[in-house]
Every structure is written in C-alpha cells, then in structure tokens.
Design a protein around this nucleic acid. Structure first.
Length: 573
DNA sequence: GCCGTTTTCGGCCCGACTGTTTTCAGTCG
C-alpha cells in the first residue's frame, strides 16, 4: 500500500515530540506539528499529489525543507532525520508525553536521570518510588502518572458526537439551576460539530463563579476533580469524559465563546490579524492599549479585526479566514433547507415502522417527500426484497400516495453492489422506481484497485443514482474500505451519479473533508439518514453538521430541492 | 522550520492552574 497521509503525519509528529524532548527551538517543533496537521487533513493522498507533479510548498506551513522530507517519506517509506534523532533520544519517549502532566521537560528529566525509555520503564520507576525523588517531581506527580498509566490501557478517548450530546445535556441542565447564571453553552469541538469529541468545554457567564464551580465539581457523575479554580475547573465523569468549565463575566462572553470554541489554529489565525491591527485578543475581550474595545459577542470580536462572523463549523483554519477576508464565505446549508430524506427503511426489511408511519413522521418534520429504500435480496440478514416483493411494495406506495396529503413517498431501493460490480436486482424492476441508492455490504476487503473498479462498474448501470455510505466506515469501530474516492467522485460526475452523506451518527460517511472534496469537484451530495425507525429521521441534523463542515451550500445538496427539480437531477447522462 | 500591504531576518498566541516551590517552571488547552 502506498504511503498514506496519516503515515507522514505520524512521522512529523514523532519528530516534533522527540525534538521537543531534546529541547529544540519550540517554533521549529511547531512547524513539524503544523505540517502533520496540514497533511493529515488533506482530502487527497500526498502520494498522488507528488505523482501528478503538484507543488507541496503551496500547502499551508510546508516550505522547501518539509516538502523535501515529505517526498523522502513517500519515496523511501522513512525519514533519515528521524533515525538520527532516535539515536540520541529513544523512539518510544514520545508515548510518555501522552501521560497526564507529562511534557517534554519532565520526559527529558526522566530519561536522563532515571534512564526511562518507554511506558514500561515509566511504570517501573513510578512503582519503585524513584520518580518522586527527582527535582521538580513529587509524590503527587508520581501518583498521577501511575493512575493515568492504569487508565490509558486500550482506551479510545474521543467519543461520538451523539454520545457527547447525551452526556452534555444533563450536565448543562444541572448547572443551569445555579442562581445568577446568564449564559451557558458547550463550546469546543462540540460546538464546531466535529464527528467525535475529546472533551467538553462548558462556558458560563455569571457574576459569582464560586457557586457554579461548587455545583460543577459536586455533580453526581463526577468521579474526579482534576483542578478547581475561580474561573476554570476540570473534572472527569464516570464515563471517562473530561469536562472543563470556564466562568467569565458577561462583557467577555463573545470573546470567551470565540476563544473556547477554537479550533486552536483558527484562533491563532484570527489573533494574528488582530496583532497586525494593534489588538490583543484573549478570552476576556479585544484590547487596544490595555483598553477593552470589544468582547460581548463573537460578531464584535470578528468585526474588530475586519472579518464577518464565521460559522463554528468552519473554524478549522482550512481557508475560512482567507475566505472571510475576501468576503467569500459559503452560505452554509441548514437543516431547514432539507425537503426530504432519500434513504430510509421500513419493517418490510429491517426497519421498525410501516410505510404509513414513516410517511407521517416525515411530514411531521416538514418534508414534502420521503424515499423508501429498503434492502435488496442479497442482504438476507435484513430480509432484503426480491423483485416480486419489491413490485408489491411499489404497488403499496402508489396506493398510499393517493391517500397521503402534503407528503409524497418516492419508490426506491437500497441495492447491494456485488463483488463484480453488478447490482442485485434486474433492470426491468429497477426502471419502475423513482430512485435507487446503491451500497457495498459484502466483500469489504478487496484491494483499492478492485474496490474502486467495482463501484465504478456499478455506476455504469443506468439505474445507479446515489452511492450510499461511500466508505463503509463505522466511527471508532470499523475502518473504511480501501477506496480511491477521488476516482469514484470523478466517475459519479461523468455519469450523473451522486454520493451520500449518511447522517447516522455512527457513520457520518462521507466525512467532512470528503464532503468538501466533493464540493470542490462540483459533485452534489445527498444528505440522508438511513433511518430504520421514525425517530431515526432526526439524525438528519448530524448529517447537516458534517455537510456544513464540508462547506456545503443549499445548492450542493440534492434534497434541498422540490421533487420536480430533484427528479431532473437524477436523470442519468 | 515557516513566512512577509511594515519584514528575506526576526519574529512566531496567550492565560490559568498545579505542584513544588519560596517566586515559579511546567503543562494544558
């Protein structure tokens, strides 16, 4: 398999960690970290970019030197510089940096004073009580190290957005009971709607912070108070989720919200512009010559540095600041723009509700159409439909549509793409349908070439409309299958097919960056829930979160249109 | 190591909390 972007990022992050432990110039260290971030968030494989003669120095934070190093990694699979660094600083020391309270200075001390080279050595030294003897270390630090080592074993630290909502809800409701609270909001990657959340950043405005803090650390789910102060406290919940609470005065609300929403690199980009204009921006406001000149709202903060408001979903330092300066920010699609759902199941296969129940639920959500796309026969686990049963469902939908008012059921199917790229129902029944979504369920581990060809071949079928959950990944559970998505997208564009953003919070497939890649290629996407019950229809907003993170506007999303316009778009070229 | 409508050299975001200290370094976000 060719070198992947994450491989390159891993090498750069390792170089950064080890250089930092060696005490190298911190800005040089940051350059490697920035480069790792840039590379890992690229939608295209760097290997392909090099093959097609692309200039890597055009990427943010990649200069001549790092471009050369990327090339070296792609061509040789490794980096000489890293090997040299590892001669002086053991390779596994970077793992120590992930332990709570451990930074480069302490790792260096542990290595030099105690000869610790890896996590096992760290554990042994802690258990032997050697760590607390060192200058700058104490009993408490040694204890923290042991506890964290215990916890870290095989733990996935980022949780899915839906779980984050479920944990945040009751916590926020509880804090709200405190007297004197004005604003309370969960900021951080939660507010930016990232597909997974590492911790919760709760922001509160309040005259007296002490009462809120008291309630916060006393919350029934708290198992550990990591730190507690007047303006900031950190706790760990029973679930292992870390929560930070920050209290600021009302006049600083906008500045604090901006600050704690991040991302870090977005904030840095905005602050840099501020510095050029003579402002200092921190969580308390925008300051000029020590005087606060803005900070009550986020709009004010952006306004001071000459920028329009930037939606939280865009704040990743992926071009949004430049777009804001050029007054070229996208008008992001909103959940209210959605006119219908294009991928749902009924109890005819593995769903839980009838055609009528699904139709009514869709109508309740303000939709004007709902595509019924039950499984096809290959998916036997779900009692997939054969041609005969599908014909019966088509009849049932026709009859029901005569009765329904204000909502139209579209006749559809979720076809299985077989290993050879054929679809698992014959064309003469497919032609009776309004639309067909197609997906891979089996033979997930083909080579990239074969998997890509398989899907392109399926798209050659004139009844192929939308590729559902295009990469097949399940967040934190199952990796995507090996696929050259850019070719698939090009193939879809050529043939008049589309891809889906599957809104199910376990999938979110396409992801944000692939959605953005589609947008940049001019490929429209469907945002669909894959609902198996009436309540699943509410997953739509998670799909919209990712669509917005991918810079999508209403026109970029198929199902923002009425049925007539949608039908037109579905016509194959 | 990157980068440039003040700069190709000299900058590079900034404050809170903890633990180990006796005024602060290190870590974190």
């Amino acid at each position: 398999m060719p070198i992947q972007n994450t491989d390159i990022a891993a090498v750069f992050n390792k170089v950064a960690d080890l250089l930092e432990i060696q005490g190298a110039n911190p800005f040089r260290v940051r350059a490697y970290r920035n480069a790792a971030r840039t590379v890992s968030s690229l939608p295209r494989n760097v290997t392909d970019m090099i093959d097609s003669g692309g200039d890597l120095t055009e990427l943010a934070g990649i200069g001549k030197d790092l471009a050369g190093k990327i090339k070296e990694i792609v061509e040789t699979g490794s980096l000489k510089q890293l090997t040299e660094i590892e001669r002086e600083t053991p390779s596994e020391l970077d793992a120590l940096m992930k332990i709570a309270g451990m930074g480069p200075k302490r790792v260096k001390a542990l290595h030099q004073e105690l000869g610790v080279t890896d996590l096992e050595g760290l554990k042994a030294a802690a258990e032997a009580g050697e760590i607390q003897q060192l200058d700058g270390f104490g009993e408490k630090t040694q204890q923290t190290i042991l506890e964290d080592l215990q916890k870290k074993v095989g733990k996935d630290t980022r949780i899915k957005l839906l779980e984050a909502e479920q944990r945040a809800g009751p916590l926020v409701a509880n804090l709200k009971k405190t007297k004197g609270i004005k604003e309370i909001i969960v900021a951080g990657s939660y507010r930016r709607r990232k597909e997974t959340v590492g911790d919760l950043d709760v922001l509160v405005t309040c005259k007296k912070g002490a009462k809120v803090m008291e309630r916060f650390v006393g919350y029934e789910d708290v198992v550990k108070v990591v730190s507690q102060g007047k303006t900031r406290s950190t706790v760990v919940l029973r679930s292992g989720l870390q929560v930070d609470l920050r209290v600021v005065p009302q006049a600083s609300y906008g500045a604090a919200l901006h600050y704690f929403t991040g991302s870090k690199s977005h904030n840095i980009a905005v602050r840099k512009i501020g510095v050029k204009k003579g402002f200092k921006i921190n969580e308390y406001g925008v300051f000029k010559d020590g005087e606060r000149v803005a900070g009550k709202t986020e709009e004010e903060v952006y306004g001071k540095v000459g920028l329009p408001f930037i939606e939280p979903e865009l704040r990743e330092d992926q071009g949004e600041v430049e777009a804001a300066r050029a007054d070229a920010l996208p008008e992001l699609v909103r959940v209210e723009d959605i006119r219908g759902d294009l991928h749902v199941h009924t109890k005819e296969t593995d769903g839980h509700h009838s055609l009528e129940e699904m139709a009514e639920a869709a109508k309740d959500r303000g939709y004007i159409y709902l595509a019924v796309t039950d499984h096809s026969k290959k998916v036997s686990m779900a009692r997939g439909l054969n041609a005969k049963r599908l014909a019966r469902q088509i009849n049932a939908i026709d009859r029901l549509n005569e009765k329904l008012d204000g909502i139209r059921l579209l006749k559809g199917i979720e076809l299985d793409i077989l290993e050879d790229g054929s679809l698992d129902l014959p064309d003469d029944i497919l032609k009776e349908l309004d639309l067909r979504v197609c997906s891979v369920h089996y033979n997930r581990n083909l080579s990239q070439e074969r998997q890509t060809e398989r899907i392109l071949r399926a798209m050659d079928n004139p009844y192929f409309n939308i590729l559902a959950h295009p990469t097949g990944r399940l967040i934190n559970e199952r990796d995507p299958y090996d696929l050259e998505l850019e070719r698939v997208m090009e193939g879809a564009l050529e043939r008049g097919c589309y891809l889906e953003i599957n809104a199910h919070p376990d999938r979110l497939d396409l992801s944000d960056r692939y959605s953005r890649m589609a947008k940049e290629m001019g490929l429209k996407l469907a945002v669909s829930t894959d609902a198996h019950s009436t309540t699943d229809l509410d997953f739509m907003r998670f799909g919209l979160d990712q669509a917005r993170r991918g810079w999508l506007e209403p026109d970029d999303v198929l199902n923002t249109r009425d049925w007539k316009a949608l039908k037109n778009l579905l016509k194959r070229r």
